[in-house]
Amino acid sequence: MLIAALAATLATPALAQHQHHAMPAQEPEPQQDRHAGHDMGTQEPDPHAGHDMGAMEKPVSPGPTMETPPPAAAGSGPPRAADAIWGAEAMAASREELRKTHGDFPVFWFQGDRMEAQLRNGADIYLWDIQGYYGGPTKRLWFKSEGEGAFGDNPDDAEVQALYAKAIMPFWDVQAGIRHDIGGPDTTHAVIGVQGLAPYMFEVDAALFLSTRGDVTARIEGEIDQRITQRLILQPRIEANLSAQDIPLLGIGAGLDSIEVGARLRYEFIREFAPYIGIEQSWRTGRSADFARARGEDPSVTSFVAGIRFWF
């Protein structure tokens, strides 16, 4: 029996190994489809299908303040690298040519801002208001002229100005020069003023005048273009004239001499040419109104205007 039990013990591992190789490998049980019997055609699409869910969990970029800073050596080179290679003297001619062809070169501009007829109650007049300049973006020679007169007569109020202008800040020039009156009493004035573009696109022209007789006067003009369409533009305009003293020779009283308020509607057939119509109301005030009445004039006048505006 001892021999038989020992033989059985030795035979058991061999038998197990034989059975392990002899038995076929069992395949795993197929899992039951949890969507079996469902109509997949009616299933709503997964809103996250095709999205990288890992990318969605990434934090939003904190912005440029957290980006990699520039290297310490950035900006430590010469301000003009070409000078370091070719020398400043060799590059001077090229730099001057670049300056001339990229903004700092003289141009000529001329504009007839108001060339119009003013239809009043039995006292129709013609009026002109022109200006222009020659020069670069920071230094210019300006010329201006305006005046008016009755149809068929010489101008009874006219002037020309020659001014030197220098830019003092973006969109603003300070101007200085002379003004000479060619209608009415022959008078010359020294002029100093500013002209430019105020906030909200208001065009402003303000000047102080000192005549050879010692009279001090001032003028402020403002206008703005209100674009209705690409070609139809409404331009409200206001002008005020002031004086530091009475000037009976010119019919001007101290303080606010006159004020004009109007609006002109123009149509730009091309940007450089636009006819317009409009209305304007003017008042003489204070002593100026008294001077006007003494001449038989109405100190308050309403005018219907028609004219052209052009530039080149």
Rank of each mutant, 00 (worst) to 15 (best):
E96P: 06
M169F: 10
L210M: 11
N154A: 15
I178N: 10
M115Q: 04
F151I: 05
L163E: 01
G177N: 00
I130T: 10
Q118R: 12
Y134I: 14
I168K: 08
V191Y: 07
R231E: 05
L127E: 14
V174E: 01
R219E: 11
T138V: 13
K100Y: 13
P185F: 00
W142F: 15
I130V: 13
R140P: 10
P137H: 13
F202K: 03
T138H: 13
Q175L: 12
D157P: 06
I228V: 09
R219G: 08
D113T: 05
I168G: 05
Q226P: 00
A150M: 14
Q175F: 03
T217G: 03
Q175S: 11
P170I: 05
I224Q: 11
F143A: 15
G193I: 03
K166Q: 12
T101V: 12
L210Y: 14
D124M: 04
H102P: 00
K166S: 12
N121E: 15
G222V: 02
E116N: 03
E223G: 04
V216P: 00
L208W: 12
A90E: 12
G152K: 02
W142K: 04
P155D: 09
D113S: 09
D104V: 03
T217M: 05
L163R: 01
A198M: 04
G87T: 06
M201P: 00
Q230Y: 00
D156Q: 08
I130M: 09
F143M: 13
A162D: 03
F171K: 14
Q175E: 14
G214Q: 08
H189S: 06
T217L: 06
D129Q: 09
A90W: 10
M201T: 13
K144F: 10
K166T: 15
I182Y: 09
G132C: 02
G196V: 01
G132L: 03
E159W: 08
G112Y: 01
Y164L: 08
G183K: 06
V160L: 09
I228P: 00
P185M: 04
R114Y: 06
T188N: 03
G132M: 02
Q226W: 09
D153T: 15
V174W: 09
V204R: 09
I220L: 11
L197K: 13
K100P: 00
E221D: 08
D153P: 08
H180W: 07
L127W: 11
G222K: 05
F202H: 07
A218F: 02
T187I: 10
Q111H: 08
A93R: 15
F110G: 06
A198S: 03
R213Y: 08
D181S: 00
I192C: 06
V191G: 06
G152D: 14
Q230D: 13
L127I: 12
F143N: 08
I168Y: 04
A123K: 15
Y126F: 04
Y200H: 12
L98K: 13
E223V: 01
P106L: 05
A93C: 07
E148N: 07
